[in-house]
Design a binder for these strands. Sequence first.
DNA 1: TTCAGTGCAAACAATTTGCAGTATT
DNA 2: AATACTGCAAATTGTTTGCACTGAA
Lengths: 146, 146
Amino acid sequence: MDTEEIKNKFISYLKRNGHRVTEERLNVLKYIFSQATHIDADALFIQMKTNSLKVSRATVYNTLQLLIDSKIITKSTFGEPHQHYEPVYGLRQHHHLICEVCGKVIEFENQNIETIQKSISKKYNFISNKYLFQIMGICEKCSKKN
Amino acid sequence: MDTEEIKNKFISYLKRNGHRVTEERLNVLKYIFSQATHIDADALFIQMKTNSLKVSRATVYNTLQLLIDSKIITKSTFGEPHQHYEPVYGLRQHHHLICEVCGKVIEFENQNIETIQKSISKKYNFISNKYLFQIMGICEKCSKKN
DNA sequence: TTCAGTGCAAACAATTTGCAGTATT
DNA sequence: AATACTGCAAATTGTTTGCACTGAA
């Protein structure tokens, strides 16, 4: 994954839409891409603060929204009340198995889902922007514990 | 949809699990099934209050959780920060197209999704409890407006 | 009669907003 | 120089909790 490319994509999105390119926005981008996987807004804020960066929660939320609008990251709920954010740009579409016992999230890919998604959108003349496939249940590890 | 049957299912679930059968709980059940489609907790509470029923928010949330546990309703997020609840018991599994412009939710069924879900769960030795397929985008009506 | 369930209000958590100061354009 | 963006704290929204009272078993 080319970090420079993502950064340029974001900068170009900002300029194209009359938003300013600020240090803070680029920092949020950098931190979200330094994650192994999804993260929530507050954890991201705390992590940035810990590394003594100048940010506020408001800016984190604001920037996350801009990153979603520019299709660089995506937001999803894993059954919890708060949102999780994860990079999508340049990655293949993937989906989640969510363990309701330990909270673990397993990612998987499946080409058929994409096909179904396209055919359904077409059927309803729906312009799909993104789609979500999640399976909730009990992971192998947790089911063996009982 | 047989209302009596659902009510009995809920009552039997409550008794089986040592919960009491209360007027309030049955009222929440009744109100959620009187909805055409999904509703959020607060709207449900207000609707019950409007019809001068004795309820509190705490009871609504408590009962919604019991209804989820008994597999009578399900909870989902439609991109919004709060949760929506909708009946599932006795209904065929269906999925959602969500318009990001007008907020409209279109329901659809698709047998292939069920098949994929099963094969993926099997592959990961995951005991699936429920699954979710959502397509976010722009509905026909809204796309014609521009 | 017991104690789970209730209503209420207060607490909490996640997110948004208002405003005065700051920095990109 | 103008004004969009920022940080901060306060406000708002959705949900949970503590506690004294009530009612199902």
